[in-house]
Design a protein around this nucleic acid. Structure first.
Length: 789
RNA sequence: GCCGAAGUGGCGGAACUGGUAGACGCGCUGGACUCAAAAUCCAGUGUUGGCAACAACGUGUGGGUUCGAGUCCCACCUUCGGUACCA
């Protein structure tokens, strides 16, 4: 009997549905195994051949595990909040929920065509109120907790308040804002409600704050650091500028150390662990306070990883935005400093990265080195970043390349401090070799001896201490957008308060347009009656207008699959204690410092609250490589846009007949013949020749196109490997290969088995590779032989 | 610059802890079947020389360890991914 994949597949899919073959229970005598894919954003372009690579791998593995006697959780869902649906809504007026629903239906159908063994009864959608109710609930827990360094976990804010009212905050050791003052119980009790709430915001794990953010004017929203690449937005490639705005933030810094520690316990790719380690950027060093000459009330704190070089300090540099700059600038330097501040503020991220000139300005003031009382000039320069450390550095030109460059450029002194250092005229030498010279109390010591000596002295005098500094910043958690989870907060007297838990979910309101309001408020500002009434019949207060970022829902979705219909809890304790954690997680490496870091952070927080049993939610992670698209380009005449030249003839001379056919006098009449016009890959054959008829019908302006063909009578296109994307016309839809021509136009009818085997046959799952179907017939032959046998 | 991954036939890629390099597939060549084509089947296919048996050379480059290296060590080159005034 002939191999007929479509009949076989339809028959068995029907059987799976009728008998609920893949529906699984949260109880079983078998051992459990949880296989998870990163869920897709349901884009309008539908599923392309790259999506299923990881899904096929996990499906095969799930089936294997089932046969080995495991109870396997293998679910699928949709990360359905996101920018494209909203952009589409802005241009068409169509509600994002409708387009999202349509897109999900397409995805679902395409996934079903591939014969996956998902338990569809567990499907989740992050944009569904029954799902985001719990995203909002977790947000509320974050708001209600602070990070206690002694317990080394998150604890209730309400307990912190009790401590404040009985003993103040002197004994409290918690993660909080740098500028948190210390106070006694009496002082706390004497504060107004507003003052108390403002102080508590400095402790909460999520809180609004004025901060410099990546503002993208084209998208009309704020982006997180990992959403900005090379100074432009990752999505769309629009310019991003620094802007001071009030934003919700997540105190992920509180978990920096545990996020590092946890990496040692998971079986994840080295490259991902490495990226997370670098992103967290732990560096050990010391903080030192420098006095300021003539300003007895001021001290400049710096962070340094090389406190041993402190006798080599010859100047000090502040970030141009540093709060002391105005006060420290002497009248004769005021013009210059203000000019410099203006200039740096005007420079965009892109400018800064493109051109790294040595620039700076002298304030006219001097700092005092606490160790030797030396006066050193205070400069400002944009190589010092306001957002890292204290926004001020002690400059040691003999030990740091940038300081050396700066000193040379502005003719500042350079003091060698180690006998091993070479010629100070050449360049800095950040060595730790040798013994110290010109270095007061550490003269003659080695690095190992010098550091504790200095830190002890600093701590005794109260002028500094050993300190660990992290590169990671608190994560900005609000977006000036419509299509996201509303933040369950209302504002009263300029203070944010949580809405009552019984009001969840706080459902997205209807708006007339999806654009910011005329006054520049986020789209939710358009909603009527977007107000909260804490006490029935009492006064109402405005809700928060921003929504949560894309990574909110994806930070905990893996727990919802365990118990998706639960309306009492995010997931029952029975379910989470049965499934515990993901045993195998497969997804793209592009989420290394986004989703994969944020979700670990939320998980650790939920672990602290006793909501989940494992401190790391994914035991093993595998990154599947991206399947790239092979784009096709046509060459056309610059002067005559409807004349197309076959790729192999672009630099040829043409015969008189050819010129006549094209209707030009000479080759030169065509002008520049340039590529760059993407043509739909579905109009191009295996050998790169163009389906001319199809091309004429593709777009109306191509109807009268003239083609100069190759000697064999075909028109050839140029190829390039690029990311698969709708705009590049290089998206290949798996349906075309799986379904037959009765089901979809141009369907090849290979069937799901052939398609799945072929994707696995393409090469190792982890490796990126361009899509090509040249070998699919080999797999098809195998299946037919196998069927015959 | 720094961190990470990877370099094997015409192509995708195999080769587990050091033990017959190139499995399997694509492509290509020849043959069978057919009036013919497609499909299918059979055989061959790292490079060079040879009718052949066979020989020499072959895993980015140069060294090294070993009875034996694609695999281990050192130095370098190239490609891809990440990241970058982080004090």
């Amino acid at each position: 009997m002939e191999y007929n994949p479509r009949d076989i597949e339809q028959k068995w899919k029907q059987y799976w549905d009728d008998h609920e073959v893949y529906k699984i229970e949260n109880t079983s005598d078998k051992p459990k195994y949880y296989v998870l894919d990163m869920f897709p954003y349901p884009s309008g372009a539908g599923l392309h051949v790259g999506h299923p690579l990881g899904y096929i791998a996990t499906d095969i593995f799930s089936r294997y595990k089932r046969l080995k006697g495991f109870n396997v959780l293998h679910p699928m869902g949709y990360d359905s909040f996101g920018l494209p649906a909203e952009q589409y809504a802005i241009s068409t007026g169509q509600h994002p929920a409708i387009t999202t629903e349509n897109n999900i239906n397409t995805f679902r159908k395409q996934l079903e065509n591939l014969g996956f063994s998902y338990d569809w009864s567990r499907e989740v959608r992050t944009s569904d109120p029954s799902f985001y109710k719990w995203t909002q609930w977790i947000f509320m827990q974050l708001f209600n907790h602070y990070y206690d360094k002694i317990a080394d976990k998150a604890l209730l804010i309400s307990d912190l308040v009790k401590t404040f009212s009985t003993e103040g905050n002197k004994k409290v050791n918690a993660v909080c804002d740098e500028d948190t003052p210390s106070f006694t119980a009496d002082e706390w009790n004497a504060m107004s409600e507003k003052e108390q709430q403002l102080l508590l915001l400095k402790y909460r794990l999520t809180f609004p704050e004025e901060s410099y953010v990546n503002w993208c004017p084209a998208l009309g929203t704020v982006l997180s650091n990992d959403e900005v690449k090379d100074g432009v937005s990752e999505r769309g490639g629009y310019p991003v500028e620094r802007k001071l705005m009030k934003q919700w933030a997540m105190r992920i810094t509180a978990y920096a150390d545990r996020l590092l520690e946890g990496l040692k316990t998971v079986d994840w790719p080295e490259s991902i662990k490495d990226q997370q380690t670098n992103w967290i950027g732990r560096s050990q060093g010391a903080s030192v306070k420098f006095g300021v000459e003539g300003h007895a009330d001021k001290q400049i704190g710096v962070f340094t990883t090389r406190v041993d070089t402190i006798y080599g300090v010859t100047f000090m540099v502040l970030a141009p935005e540093h709060e002391y700059v105005a006060a420290l600038t002497t009248p004769e330097h005021q013009d210059e400093i203000e000019k410099y501040q203006k200039w740096t503020a005007s420079r965009s991220e892109v400018d800064r990265q493109a051109e790294k000139r040595i620039t700076g300005a002298f304030t006219g003031s001097y700092a005092v080195n606490p160790f030797n009382g030396e006066k050193v000039p205070i400069w400002i320069a944009d190589y010092v970043l306001a957002g890292y450390g204290t926004g001020a550095v002690m400059a040691v030109p003999s030990g740091d390349q940038r300081d050396w460059n700066f000193a040379k450029h502005f003719n500042l002194p350079i003091i060698p401090i180690l006998d091993a250092q070479k010629n100070m005229d050449e360049a800095a030498d950040a060595t730790k070799e040798g013994r110290y010279i010109n270095s007061g109390m550490i003269n003659g010591m080695t690095y190992e001896e010098a550091v504790p000596t200095l830190i002890n002295w600093l701590e005794e005098k109260g002028l500094g201490k050993g300190k660990i500094q992290y590169r990671i910043r608190n994560a900005v958690f609000s977006r000036q957008r419509y299509w996201g989870e509303p933040v369950p907060v209302y504002w009263k007297n300029e203070i944010p308060y949580l809405i009552d838990e019984s009001e969840l979910p706080l459902v997205l309101p209807q708006v007339d347009k999806y654009l910011p309001t005329e006054t520049g408020e986020p789209p939710l500002g358009r909603a009527e009656d977007w107000k909260y009434t804490p006490t029935p019949g009492g006064e109402s207060y405005p809700y928060e207008l921003s929504t949560m970022p894309g990574w909110a829902g994806s930070s905990w979705y893996f727990y919802r699959y365990m118990n998706p219909q639960n309306d009492q809890e995010f997931c029952s304790q029975d379910a989470v204690n049965y499934w515990r954690q993901v045993d195998l997680y497969v997804g793209g490496p592009e989420h290394a410092v986004g989703h994969l870091l944020y979700s670990r952070f939320w998980n650790k927080f939920m672990y602290d609250l006793g909501l989940v049993p494992e401190e790391e939610y994914a035991k093993k992670l595998i990154n599947q490589g991206m399947i790239q698209g092979v784009s096709k380009f046509v060459y056309r005449s610059f002067n005559h846009p409807n004349i197309y030249i076959s790729y192999d003839r672009v630099s040829d001379d043409f015969t008189p007949e050819e010129l006549k056919y094209l209707g030009v006098n000479s080759r030169d009449d065509l002008g520049f013949v340039g590529a760059g016009f993407h043509v739909d890959v579905n109009l191009v054959n295996e050998d790169s020749s163009l389906d001319i008829e199809g091309f004429r019908n593709w777009r109306s302006e191509n109807k009268d196109a003239k083609f100069l063909l190759s000697s064999d009578g075909k028109y050839y296109c140029e190829s390039a490997v690029e990311k698969m994307s709708k705009s590049k016309y290089n998206v290949v839809n798996p349906d075309k290969l799986v379904l037959d021509s009765n089901e979809i136009e141009g369907g090849k009818g290979y069937g799901a088995d052939c398609f799945r085997m072929y994707e696995m046959f393409l090469g190792p799952v982890e490796v990126a590779k361009p899509w090509n179907t040249s070998g699919i017939d080999g797999v098809n032959r195998f299946l037919r032989k196998f069927w015959g046998l």
